[in-house]
Design a protein around this nucleic acid. Structure first.
Lengths: 344, 344
DNA sequence: TTGTACGCGTTATCAT
DNA sequence: ATGATAACGCGTACAA
């Protein structure tokens, strides 16, 4: 590569005949500098195409103005809108974003944390793959300490970290309630995995069913370890084995796609056989008029970033209480939830 | 925040009673160290939870092991799969990824480049929003120099940078050819923007029409400055004003969603009125059996990263010829392209 | 207003 | 085998 020696503050000093210190003052815009000196320096900077070395600045100032963002899977619709919002908010506050993808693997999460600490990032926003504190081997426990961390979307139980998330339980509760009020007695769920968000949605489902004395069977919940465990075939089987079902809540977009394919295969699409509600919106949901519970993804990204920067700038005497923000979900009604009302 | 002083190599030295140098040897795993010293140091590292400071390392070694990734819009399906692949490949080679989103704004692209240079990243992968070299103000021209850069997906005309992309022209050509061979005489395009990839696809369209002596009218191409200019309403109007059309190629996923909504509105969905081919795949394309030209997105990400790292490690005596890699597109046939065959 | 000199944490050379 | 020390580029306390 073009091995042009990097231009440093010293080169500027030499060219202008001034000292490092004076040049530094101009660049950092502090202290007193005579107008002539200032002008000379600025001219030299342009002439030599000098760009301050942020690495040296970071070392010197003991802060990098970088925040690390760790997500489970960037291919996921939620994560990339989240990342979009975080980057945008970060840039505005003068921070850059170091991006890490764990593929939902805990070990990778540990690696990323360690790496980000080595990089001396100022703070970390984490969509964790860890379910609860007890799942973290104690030799890795320190990774979650001594650095500002904000959890986004998913909680880690018993971890006492700041958390910005959606009202998953309440959102699900409301959907199910509305199903019930429309006469549905047998409501199915399609889900997968065990992260806190999905567990919360299930909790909302169960609460609503309990409250309204609606029967729930284990067989009404189709789930698996990973999303790949929920194949179109399994969904068809699920529907077949639970013919009572009149309503279905799917817990994310990819699952919805699979459900729709399954329904098409068995000739049940567009014929009002099932009432359907999905989670997280997608451009194509419009097409099938799929009612959707929408999360304020970008708001979560924005608030996570704001909160993180707040912690980063916190003086040691200030309160260090952890904060949990739960954003409302938005119910986007399109019709698919009314396919059948007042059954029986 | 917990202002625990950062543990440095000196703390380890103190604790072990050895010198910085010896500790450094153990950490860097070079030179000669007695087994006892080594053991002492390793114990101290664990005890103090020492994590080497990558910032200092970066300053010292004049290299950060970070690559910058600049994309136009991370919300876009292509970009996030791309980012996924880049991060994965980078991590494997020991690099971290600094992520920047420009929102397709040239000015932001300049800012990002400047910033990444200040950060002294080792190289940059760029999905640029610049169309051609002449669009870059000369005071910003230097930003594209003196640092390893690989362009991904989109080219910047006349820039002489490495480029990893898809065979956009050829891919489109083949689709149109197949349309024509199936009897279509009037083929519409829905597009937007002016980036090289879309221009290439249009070129493929025109070439095929020319070669096979098929009529093309300007009105057969619906386009706009940004994607928001292509509303469902405009698509409906477009279809109405070009009733001869029997086949349509849409240049990306979001446009497809809009087209499908438009078709539904006018009662033309699922009735074989139009043959449709889209670009870039999506989970829901399966549902409508939408034939799709698929790009090898992840391959592009992987190869961009590999190429970049190659350049980063290039000795000055080696060839510095720029390389362009054009990956084949894959035609995923699902049926939507056959809706009408042998019209007339 | 300007300059000198030290320290941030590493790495690596040179001397012991 | 180990230690002292310089250098990476910058910021700043202190001196002039």
């Amino acid at each position: 590569m073009a091995d042009k020696k990097n231009i440093t503050i010293i080169d500027i000093a030499k060219l202008t005949g001034l000292s490092k210190a004076t040049v530094g003052r101009v660049i950092g815009n502090y202290g007193n500098v005579s107008p002539e000196s200032k002008e000379k320096v600025e001219k030299a900077i342009k002439e030599l195409n000098y760009i301050p070395n942020a690495v040296a600045q970071g070392l010197r100032s003991n802060g990098t103005k970088i925040i690390g963002v760790i997500v489970g899977s960037i291919k996921n619709n939620f994560c990339n809108r989240f990342l979009y919002a975080v980057e945008k908010a970060a840039i505005e506050k003068g921070y850059d974003v170091l991006f890490c993808n764990t593929g939902e693997q805990i070990e990778r999460e540990f690696q990323c944390l360690k790496n980000l600490k080595a990089r001396r990032v100022d703070g970390i926003i984490l969509i964790s793959s860890v379910l609860k504190a007890q799942d973290i081997p104690k030799e890795n426990m320190d990774l979650y300490k001594d650095i500002p961390i904000v959890l986004a979307d998913r909680n880690i139980e018993d971890m006492d970290l700041d958390l910005i998330t959606s009202s998953n339980c309440q959102g699900a509760y409301n959907i199910i309630k509305s199903f019930i009020q429309n006469g549905h007695q047998h409501i199915g769920i399609i889900s997968y995995g065990e992260v806190s968000t999905l567990k919360e949605r299930l909790r909302g489902y169960r609460q609503a069913c309990d409250n309204y004395k609606i029967q729930t069977k284990d067989s009404y919940i189709l789930t698996g370890k990973t999303i790949d465990d929920i194949s179109t075939e399994r969904i068809k089987e699920f529907l077949k084995q639970n013919p009572q079902l009149t309503a279905i809540m799917v817990l994310n977009n990819s699952l919805l796609a699979k459900l729709l394919v399954a329904l098409k295969d068995i000739g049940c699409i567009d014929n009002d056989r099932y009432s359907i509600v999905s989670w997280d919106d997608d451009e194509l949901n419009e097409l099938y008029a799929i009612s959707t519970v929408e999360q304020q993804v970008e708001e979560i990204g924005l608030l996570s970033t704001k909160r993180l920067i707040e912690i980063i700038n916190r003086k040691s005497k200030e309160s260090d209480a952890t904060v949990t923000l739960t954003l409302k979900t938005i119910y986007k009604e399109r019709g698919s939830n009314h396919c059948i009302t007042a059954v029986k």
